[in-house]
Simulated assay, not measured.
Amino acid sequence: MNSTPDPRPLFQRATEQLAALIRTVRPEQLAAPTPCSDYDVRTLLSHIVGVAHRIGVVGEGGDLLAVPALAEDVPDDGWGVAYEETRARAIAAWADSARLDAQMEMPWGPTPGRTALSGFVMELVTHAWDLSEGLGRPLVLDQELAEFARAFARQALPADRRGEGVPFEAVLPAPEGADAYGQLAAWLGRRPLADR
């Protein structure tokens, strides 16, 4: 039995935080930039919905790579509904505690479910920061989630593992006085929009 804590409560909170951010999106913000240089707000929303779909598929025992990274055919006024549907599926897929110790096939190899889900928490928390930046920081973000994500990122994505095939830039110095989100973003090579 794995002694790593159950990441499902943090996963639930991470999905709720993203849902709250998505509810603040106004139509005129969809083309706004985000710290993900290839994604404006609309494309980031598409990716967030796609990631939630992937999390559900993996939790159900399916193949992550069989699911597109971007959600298709979501109207501009449908992001909230699309995310709620995919996050509900993902939460249900991970409800059985046996999934936490099941071996899951991930792009980097077989991984215990609790480690895979912890990685998904890191991704959702990171994208919450990305989306918050793109929307002008409309809500106060959960610092405990960022602390968890930062600790996981430091372990799973060491500074020397960047480059080809890794979707994160080189580690940047965190701005002085940065909170946990600022430190997480810097570790993953992201800059606040104000610093560009």
Rank of each mutant, 00 (worst) to 15 (best):
V81K: 14
D40S: 05
G56A: 00
V166I: 13
I48G: 00
W94C: 08
D101M: 07
L18E: 01
D195T: 13
G163F: 06
F120T: 01
R114S: 06
Q183D: 10
G182D: 04
T43G: 13
G165T: 07
L21M: 05
R114F: 03
A186T: 13
G177R: 12
Q12Y: 14
W94D: 00
P107K: 08
R137K: 01
A194Y: 11
Y39W: 14
D40C: 13
P192V: 06
L172S: 10
D101G: 14
G134D: 11
R191L: 09
R99W: 07
W94S: 11
S118A: 15
L100T: 11
V171I: 14
G177V: 08
C36F: 12
V57Q: 08
P27W: 07
G189K: 12
C36K: 15
V121L: 03
G59I: 00
A159D: 11
R23D: 15
A71S: 14
L21V: 00
G182Q: 00
D77V: 07
P9N: 01
S37I: 15
E133A: 02
D160R: 06
A88E: 15
H127C: 00
L10K: 04
L10H: 03
R150I: 01
V171Y: 09
L70A: 07
P75N: 04
L117E: 05
I91E: 09
V51N: 13
A92V: 02
E144P: 04
P112H: 09
R114C: 12
R196P: 02
G78C: 08
G136Q: 10
G78F: 01
A52F: 10
R161I: 00
P138L: 10
M106V: 08
P5F: 01
Q103F: 05
